[in-house]
Measured scan of single mutants.
Amino acid sequence: KPGPLPPNLDDLKVSELRQQLRIRGLPVSGTKTALMDRLRPFQD
């Protein structure tokens, strides 16, 4: 099960964002902004 995301996704490196997306079965392509947008729904 994926762990909790930090409140500020901007603090994560692109590689860390991609890792979080992979865990959730989401696409890992695109800019850092696109990756963050994709992860936002999973934040508490």
Rank of each mutant, 00 (worst) to 15 (best):
1 K>G: 05
1 K>I: 13
1 K>L: 02
1 K>T: 04
1 K>F: 05
1 K>M: 01
2 P>T: 12
2 P>K: 15
2 P>Q: 15
2 P>L: 15
2 P>V: 15
2 P>A: 15
2 P>Y: 14
3 G>D: 09
3 G>A: 14
3 G>K: 15
3 G>Q: 15
4 P>N: 15
4 P>M: 15
4 P>Q: 14
4 P>W: 06
4 P>T: 15
4 P>F: 15
4 P>E: 14
5 L>M: 10
5 L>I: 13
5 L>E: 10
5 L>Q: 10
5 L>Y: 09
5 L>K: 04
6 P>I: 07
6 P>F: 07
6 P>V: 10
6 P>G: 10
7 P>I: 14
7 P>D: 13
7 P>E: 15
7 P>H: 15
7 P>S: 12
7 P>T: 13
8 N>H: 06
8 N>E: 09
8 N>A: 10
8 N>T: 10
8 N>Q: 10
8 N>M: 08
8 N>W: 00
9 L>N: 01
9 L>I: 08
9 L>F: 13
9 L>G: 04
9 L>D: 01
9 L>K: 02
9 L>H: 04
9 L>P: 04
10 D>C: 15
10 D>A: 15
10 D>R: 10
10 D>P: 04
10 D>F: 04
10 D>Y: 13
11 D>C: 08
11 D>Y: 10
11 D>K: 14
11 D>S: 15
11 D>G: 11
12 L>T: 06
12 L>D: 05
12 L>N: 04
12 L>W: 07
12 L>A: 05
12 L>S: 08
12 L>V: 04
12 L>H: 03
13 K>E: 00
13 K>F: 08
14 V>T: 09
14 V>Y: 07
14 V>G: 02
14 V>M: 11
14 V>Q: 00
14 V>R: 00
14 V>A: 05
14 V>F: 00
14 V>W: 00
14 V>L: 10
15 S>M: 09
15 S>T: 13
15 S>Y: 08
15 S>V: 09
15 S>P: 07
15 S>N: 08
15 S>D: 13
15 S>R: 09
16 E>H: 00
16 E>P: 00
16 E>K: 01
16 E>L: 01
16 E>A: 07
17 L>N: 00
17 L>T: 01
17 L>I: 03
17 L>Q: 13
17 L>C: 00
17 L>W: 01
17 L>G: 02
17 L>P: 00
18 R>H: 07
18 R>Y: 02
18 R>D: 00
18 R>A: 06
19 Q>P: 02
19 Q>T: 05
19 Q>A: 09
19 Q>G: 06
19 Q>Y: 11
20 Q>A: 12
20 Q>D: 03
20 Q>S: 02
21 L>V: 05
21 L>G: 02
21 L>C: 08
21 L>W: 00
22 R>F: 14
22 R>T: 08
22 R>M: 03
22 R>A: 10
22 R>I: 06
23 I>H: 13
23 I>W: 08
23 I>P: 03
23 I>M: 14
23 I>A: 14
23 I>R: 09
24 R>Y: 00
24 R>K: 06
24 R>A: 02
24 R>F: 01
24 R>E: 04
24 R>C: 02
24 R>H: 00
24 R>W: 02
25 G>I: 01
25 G>N: 12
25 G>S: 07
25 G>A: 06
25 G>V: 00
26 L>W: 00
26 L>S: 04
26 L>R: 01
26 L>T: 01
26 L>M: 13
27 P>A: 06
27 P>C: 09
27 P>S: 12
28 V>M: 13
28 V>E: 14
28 V>T: 14
28 V>S: 14
28 V>K: 05
28 V>Q: 13
29 S>R: 06
29 S>Q: 13
29 S>T: 12
29 S>I: 06
29 S>M: 12
29 S>D: 14
29 S>W: 05
30 G>T: 00
30 G>E: 03
30 G>W: 00
30 G>V: 01
30 G>F: 01
31 T>K: 09
31 T>E: 12
31 T>S: 14
31 T>V: 09
32 K>G: 01
32 K>I: 05
32 K>R: 12
32 K>F: 03
32 K>A: 05
32 K>E: 08
32 K>T: 07
33 T>H: 02
33 T>L: 09
33 T>W: 05
33 T>R: 12
33 T>M: 06
33 T>A: 14
33 T>G: 12
34 A>G: 04
34 A>D: 14
34 A>C: 05
35 L>C: 10
35 L>Y: 02
35 L>T: 04
35 L>G: 05
35 L>N: 03
35 L>K: 05
35 L>E: 07
36 M>L: 05
36 M>P: 05
36 M>K: 11
36 M>Q: 06
36 M>A: 08
36 M>W: 00
37 D>W: 01
37 D>H: 06
37 D>Y: 08
37 D>A: 08
37 D>N: 15
37 D>K: 08
38 R>P: 09
38 R>W: 00
38 R>Y: 04
38 R>L: 02
39 L>C: 01
39 L>W: 01
39 L>P: 06
39 L>S: 03
39 L>E: 04
39 L>V: 03
40 R>C: 04
40 R>L: 08
40 R>T: 11
40 R>I: 09
40 R>M: 08
41 P>H: 10
41 P>K: 07
41 P>T: 07
41 P>C: 10
41 P>W: 10
41 P>Y: 05
41 P>F: 08
42 F>M: 09
42 F>A: 13
42 F>G: 08
42 F>L: 14
42 F>R: 11
42 F>S: 13
42 F>C: 10
42 F>W: 11
43 Q>I: 11
43 Q>G: 10
43 Q>E: 11
43 Q>V: 12
43 Q>C: 12
43 Q>T: 14
43 Q>D: 15
43 Q>H: 06
44 D>H: 10
44 D>P: 06
44 D>R: 12
44 D>Q: 09
44 D>N: 09
44 D>A: 11
44 D>E: 12
